[in-house]
Amino acid sequence: MKKILLAATAAFTFTAVSAQAAEHVEIPKEKWSFDGVLGTFDRAQLQRGFQVYKDVCSACHSLNYISFRNFEALGYSEEQVKTLAAEYEVQDGPNDEGDMFKRKAKPSDRLPKPFANDALARMSNGGALPPDLSLMTKAREGGPDYVYHLLLGYEEPPAGVQLVTGMSYNKYFPGHQIAMTKQITDGVVTFADGSPNDAAHVAKDVTAFLHWAAEPKLEARHSTGLRVTLYALIFAVLAFLAKRRMWKNIPH
């Protein structure tokens, strides 16, 4: 009984944060292009993932820390980013008359949010707040693997599990009851580059995009890291040899 209640709680508090679920579900490991010592992002995959975010996720989920200018890192040119930004409208002002006005977005603008505020977001989503996705792959235990499997983890509830109204059953969500319905399905988007668009590929692409959004400096981190660490290693070897020579005639 307590367990079901706990599960319901976790589901209700959709934003939730539960690092430790009521029970532990093993999240399978996936292969990512950004894994490993010199892992990098796959630009084509990021662009596809952005398309998924734009067409599917952005209806409810914000990406608060991302500006249009950041999309140059996805491999778009400055011109393409300008064109992309101009598809959106943002509020600016006040103008000389003291009125707020709408204008086309510029590359330096943040991505507009789907809802003006959290209260409106909750009201539009049956009381559940769709969390911001800018840091999602870092803000959950399991990281990108968790996000990927969550997107695909929708199942029929096992016998005996009573779903709270409006909730879906998800194998990987802590407590299993999630307010988000299944969004990633086969063919939900059609990619411009003709890449496969079955649910697994779509989920993979959008997760990679979200990981870029959460950790945009990952490539710089890996490449700087390799150089710095190699430098320190060589220094360590030299220091060891110098130390050994200095101590040669000192019994210790």
Partner: peptide, 10 residues
């Protein structure tokens, strides 16, 4: 403490 919502443990 939890228990405000009916779905929460009391």
């Amino acid at each position: 403490p939890q228990g405000v919502k009916v779905t929460e443990p009391r």
